[in-house]
């Protein structure tokens, strides 16, 4: 797993691109994400907040950042801790 890797959820439709990553397992819907997606598993209700297309998700330490490129029902997480939306200050269009 490295920046640029595209990961699929095995619990929902979510797909992400890794912008930045450290150690730890990237999960969605309660199950590990992988490039192949893996065998389908049930969505864990504790990780069912959903992912939003085009949003970036980060961990508190700022070591991992994911870009959601396909939305789904699962929540993105790192080692069991749900990732939070990265809020960016909106900038005026400059080009």
């Amino acid at each position: 797993m490295k920046p640029g890797s595209r990961l699929k959820s095995s619990a929902c439709d979510t797909e992400v691109v890794v912008i930045r990553c450290g150690s730890g397992t990237i999960q969605c819907g309660g199950a590990a994400m992988s490039e192949g997606g893996g065998d389908a598993v049930e969505l864990n209700p504790d990780f069912a907040g959903g992912s939003v297309m085009g949003k970036r998700y980060v961990d508190a330490a700022g070591t991992t950042e994911l870009l959601c490129v396909k939305p789904g029902k699962g929540s993105l997480a790192l080692d069991g801790t749900v990732l939070v939306l990265k809020e960016a200050k909106p900038l005026p269009a400059s080009d």
């Binding site: 920046p3 297309m53 085009g54 949003k55 970036r56 870009l67 960016a88 909106p90 269009a93």
Partner: peptide, 23 residues
């Protein structure tokens, strides 16, 4: 690619334009 993607993700919100917007 990494330079341009970083620029876009850092300055543009995905699908933030109204359908009537035109540049």
């Amino acid at each position: 690619h990494s330079n341009l993607v970083s620029y876009i993700l850092g300055t543009v919100e995905f699908a933030s334009a109204e359908e009537s917007d035109a540049a």
